[in-house]
Design a protein around this nucleic acid. Structure first.
Lengths: 361, 361
DNA sequence: CGCAAAAATGTAATCGATTACATTTTTGAG
DNA sequence: CTCAAAAATGTAATCGATTACATTTTTGCG
């Protein structure tokens, strides 16, 4: 485990900013596997024929095909995809950038992507962007280095950054966070309307002091949801109070819990809280309980996403359901479309959301 | 989106059992990127020199290095890793097989793997084994096809199958589910002791009717935990009742909820339940509540794993903590060790567990 | 300054597949 | 049976890097 790490290896090179560990003098791994040439010899045909059989081309006589297949079976030959990939100039890998696989919302989207990718013969290269703090070099470089054929980005921070640069020429798709103006294909929901729906539900229940626990307003989705929240209040004749709003830079349970506790310390504390993610909302419920508030009797809570856990907590969470699986599947399909036809302009897609009323509000 | 899928493409070929979509007559994508040769020309040196600069080899005069770097910067050249990988015979990809990324337990392990892999210049190829029902062909074939350099398997079902076959020659590591006899490196915890600890905690609280909600006993870890449970009861002078035990083939919340409901319908229902995963346990709490039982007053619950959510539910979950992050990190390190030195025999590693007492028991 | 050793650079083989194009074999109409 | 067209197969170029080995340049001691 003591590989020497070279100093240079600048630009053009490997993961993030680290230098690529050198193979250390070893005389290139002595090709362990069989090559197509050996199989061809065994079968008494040319490499071209073997390749044709393996790739299911037409124009191979059944007898020949059988000979080849027999040789393949006998030798246990497996295609070397490294070589195939170089020749066909595709990696058959789809890069998926997630801020946090641990967040069940993203996990479910990832499954959607994975399933569509597999159906089309692609595998998924997963990058947990949050895990790597020193992410100077853009992950999109992986595309340029042919590490992946295309990318799906779920991380709002990375998406923002990419939209800022001129990355729109690269084959990628934005998911959940997007800007319709930028010409980058996207999937998402109507965040403005969704947030409005959540707030209107609380208003209908008689709440007038409604808090918002949001993520960083640098993100478009956060601004859209905030605007939906503000407009819904204003339309109901309520002047939003800035002290009801909080912005967090994390979506995990703990963040929600402590934010709720803080919010409740105010003199005119809200009687309802809208959190922009279920993980936050679940933390909020926990935080409220820890300061002696009951949900929904003292404070109502509405979440966002409808992760599978939302129905299991106590009280079951009222939330805005996002079609996570479909978001992932659609993102993958858009990307594949774009790969198949780089010129066609791929549309943006908005999927429907849905208010799921449970007991927390 | 209408790629024709070839019929043949047997053996030796692409993902799972599907045939690889044909490139469809297109005359091989016209090399979009710059090649090292072009950069070499621009810099007025040979390709070898460019390569040496890019890989940080010694013996390059600073002036030359600068020329090359300038040419690289000017041209925006990026290494084609497809070509590099073929030449160096490594994909720099680590395959990670998970039964379900949606399960927070696995998600956290995945992060551990990812972080170590990245530190060593590897990326992670994620396969959600559960997502693909028709997984006839072994995922380990991805190793033989050079799609990945090594694999970490978290899926007990896949591990069992792999241990059955003679896959021990392939560079892979088992995580969480393992058999010390098989010569395959592994990381995990002492399941027998851990389960015993959980049960003994419940015994100490005065419980005598203790239920077990377990996964399929085909899995070693499930058998080990069951044995730990049984022995702990026996040692306390209690004859285990078979009706207190349930085996599920899913670990998700719903499975736990309905199992709990079933368990409570019996005449001599348990006064405590030990579930072998926190997701199950959280479902159990929910299920108990739905049949009118309070936790921990009517029924105590102990979980397993200590996912971050465990502290956030109501009541906070007493559980056996597994060092998830470390499990993942260790698995990755063992694998890298094995890759660096294929001959050395890599040891099995048992990491410590810990009983975390909260309010559910 | 001369010259051997060391350092820098270049040339070309190589990794293992795919496939354009050339060649051979098969087919079947007359 | 003949022969042109169609089908099957083979030959060799190619993808773009890495690197062994050959060659040139630099270094520095006498």
């Amino acid at each position: 485990m003591s590989k020497s790490v070279s100093k240079a290896a600048r630009a053009a090179s490997s993961p993030s900013s680290k230098a690529r560990p050198q193979p250390e003098a070893q005389p290139l791994r002595p090709a362990e596997g069989l090559s197509i040439a050996q199989v061809a010899e065994q079968a008494g045909v040319s490499v071209a024929t073997v390749s044709r059989v393996l790739n299911g081309h037409e124009n191979v006589r059944p007898a020949t095909r059988d000979k080849v297949l027999a040789a393949v079976d006998a030798s246990g030959y497996r295609v070397n995809e490294l070589a195939r990939n170089l020749r066909t100039a595709e990696s058959r890998l789809l890069l998926t950038m997630v801020p946090d696989v641990g967040n069940p919302f993203y996990a479910e989207i990832v499954r959607g992507i994975d399933s569509v990718a597999r159906q089309h013969g692609y595998f998924m290269l997963l990058c947990d962007t949050g895990a790597d703090p020193g992410r100077e070099r853009s992950y999109f470089d992986l595309l340029r280095r042919r590490r992946a054929d295309g990318a799906i980005c779920l991380d709002p921070a990375t998406i923002q950054q990419a939209l800022g640069e001129a990355s729109s020429a690269l084959p990628w798709v934005a998911c959940c966070e997007f800007d319709p103006e930028m010409g980058v294909p996207y999937v998402g929901i109507d965040n403005y309307r969704a947030a409005g729906d959540a707030v209107r539900h609380l208003l209908a229940r008689g709440h007038r002091r409604i808090g918002l626990i949001n993520s960083d307003v640098d993100y478009l989705y956060a601004r859209q949801r905030q605007q939906g929240y503000l407009d819904a209040l204003t339309e109901a004749g309520i002047t939003p109070d800035e002290r009801w709003r909080m912005n967090l830079n994390s979506l995990d349970y703990e963040a929600g819990a402590s934010a709720a506790a803080v919010l409740m310390q105010q003199p005119h504390a809200p009687s309802a809280i809208f959190a922009v993610s279920d993980t936050l909302a679940i933390g909020v419920i926990h935080g409220l309980r820890s300061v002696g508030k009951r949900v929904p009797d003292d404070v109502a809570v509405v979440g966002f996403d409808d992760i599978s856990l939302a129905a299991q907590v106590d009280p079951p969470l009222t939330t805005i359901a996002q079609p996570m699986r479909e978001l992932g599947e659609t993102a993958a399909r858009l990307l594949l479309q774009r790969l198949a036809n780089p010129l066609a302009n791929v549309p943006g897609v908005l999927l429907p959301h849905r208010l799921v009323i449970r007991r927390s509000a």
